[in-house]
Amino acid sequence: MSLGVRLEALSAGYGSAAPVLELTDLEFPPGSFTALLGPSGCGKSTVLGLVAGFVRPTAGRVTAGSEPVRGPGPERGVVFQHYALFPWRTARGNVEFALKRLGLPRAERRRRALAALAEVGLAEGAQKYPAQLSGGMQQRVALARALAAEPEVLLMDEPFGALDALTRTRMQSLLRELWQRRGTTVLFVTHDIDEALALAGRVIVLGGSPGRVLADHAVPAGPPDPDLRALIARHLGSE
């Protein structure tokens, strides 16, 4: 269950300042896992904001499936860099927030929330508040919450950027695993070339001012390809 995403002649900017983004057309097929790679300020987070419906384009349009994006919607889930968990709700409560939309009976909602937390390896922490959880655990809750709403597109904005290296590697394999199981379309923003190559089937390098697509590479399955890494690093370095 997943939707494709299309960006058509998209531009974005804030007020009368210079545009932050001038994209050519981009298409993300249903079920694909794409990394948007680039230095900070290249507009990669803006792309995500446009698809999420947080930011309105100054020109062009975004479509998810066959519907143009007019604002945020539950078919496009978001995982934020700083988790954006509600501190007044437990881990389970945060996931239940996402499930309320489905109008389930209370017991079923609870059962599903616990199942979603178990899926991200956090069955133990269900009753804990975000402040009692480590960064990695909080991001697991955020992932469980986003997936519980059953999105068809998952938008992730440098979700593992604040985590230590070990936790980060674990979260990457968890995400790969979840994606393989669910087949949700994923757009993953990062500035880490190795993270992009480890996760995605396609890496798009953004850069320049205003931001635009510098390179678009398919990442072959199998062991990491040093030549591809060097090539992408050159694209990034040309900035």
């Binding site: 999420a52 945020p72 978001v78 700083h82 954006a84 509600f86 927030f97 996402a98 709403a149």
Partner: peptide
Amino acid sequence: SHLRAARSLGAPLRRRFTEV
């Protein structure tokens, strides 16, 4: 990000007010 998360999770205005 709290308000954005709530909107992306499909919470209508009333829930965004009372629950967020």
